[in-house]
Design a binder for these strands. Sequence first.
RNA 1: UCCUCCUUAGCUCAGUCGGUUAGAGCACCUGACUGUUAAUCAGGGGGUCCUAGGUUCAAGUCCUAGAGGGGGAGCCA
Length: 486
Amino acid sequence: MEKIRRTDIAFLLNDAEGTFVGQIVNVRGWVRTKRGNKFVGFVALNDGSCLATIQIVFDFAKMDESILDRVHSGASISVNGELVESQGSGQRFEIKAVEMELLGEANPDEYPIQPKKHSLEFLRENAHLRFRTSTFSAVFRIRHHMIFAIHKFFNDKGFYNVHTPIVTGSDAEGAGEMFQVTTLDLHKIPYNEEGNIDFSKDFFGKATNLTVSGQLEAELAALALSKVYTFGPTFRAENSNTTRHLAEFWMIEPEVAFADIEDNMDLAEDMLKYVIRYALEYCMDELVFLSQRLQDEEKSKPQNERSPMELIEKLRFVADNEFVRTTYTEAIDILKNSKANQKKQFQFPIEEWGADLQSEHERYLVEKHFQKPVILTNYPKDIKAFYMKLNDDGNTVRAMDILFPGIGEIVGGSQREERYDALVGRMREMHIPEAEMSWYLDTRKFGTVPHAGYGLGFERLMLFVTGMGNIRDVIPFPRTPKNAEF
RNA sequence: UCCUCCUUAGCUCAGUCGGUUAGAGCACCUGACUGUUAAUCAGGGGGUCCUAGGUUCAAGUCCUAGAGGGGGAGCCA
């Protein structure tokens, strides 16, 4: 077969002027469907460069039949042919094949992905092949654009990206259960004289874990570079089995010196709106497809379970409207006086100030009461982390949680406690070992400044932007309890 | 971890009150049709009914345990 430089299918299909019509081009990709008769055949070919397939037309008389017989869904082929305006009505351009090479067969008796609707559960078990489907290739193209948009947002604002450690020796971060990292032989664990595991024999000479947050290290960087953000993997060994939790996920953690809680809220709201607008600008084909898919799925649901807003409409609504900002105390009042509470519709009734909000309460506030994203601030200190700045009332801290419809908490952040004595006081109250945290306390000892930051769960953002219902479907290879396949 | 639901052909699913040979669509194979759009039409092949016990004359169907998966809760991002 004549060697011609490969062209992305996206490049050919997006060429509005049709400048390539009449040229011989080469495309390579994976067959979605093949149809036709004894005389003329059609292959829908996808190479992942865009959602759409390009139609390959071939004249049976001119092609090698032994090759065509082995071209099934999933097979990879290389085609040389002339780009022409399509005679059919389903597409503008197509390729009239001159030569075709079968790069890789896909035995149809064994290849699991077919040109039909598969359940997301089935595809999750075939995560190695689900990239080949329209839905997942759309999700993962959007994922790329969201990653890029986040870096662009922060870069354009003068933030520096910081790589915080993945292996950490600090067990004081307090964000959740940690995965232990060790090179000790688990069959021959060394013990010291007190009968405890002798970590001095371990690789790092101490007990180490996978990070549950880059925040504390990001604070160190912020107190020199002023504006920083991390974007890295995060590991939580919680036995969480929900549509919103992963054991390995990606988190964005900006940290800003000379910033207070108001600046923090502004930054988070700006960032979320920016990346949502970015998706609307650069991923419209994918969003239209996912929206259609959702609407088809909802047809089988009862009326009251259907979403009030279609995906693209919902994204525009969030990008164009102010988030509601209110305090924990006001939220408790709203919930306490709500019909749902008075009619005892909450599984956990709201009785007094100080209780943590359950997800049914968050959903009520976001989905029923305000019907838009909500930023809640000034939580009771007892339900929040040690590093959050204590308010003058002595009871609340300058925390902020951003709650999104259908997702719940998408951002959690705070203004940090920058006063040395106040921070040490909180650490003692909460039994955080000071000695191990001396490096963190040094930032408060030497040239401390007010600062603030937050953590954004990247996959939760992906859930919102794509409208997917399960967090395992917006990360290529999900890690959850009892599942580390692939 | 708790509650709840599910597991039948490669895939999606039906299978009534426990009853005799377990079905359909898609996919695959054969044939028909010179431009299809998940092509269509006709025919064909394809089953560890999740696993292990149990009840029964008889189990895909009922019971117990286990495995895997979904949804909800908690923990959180």
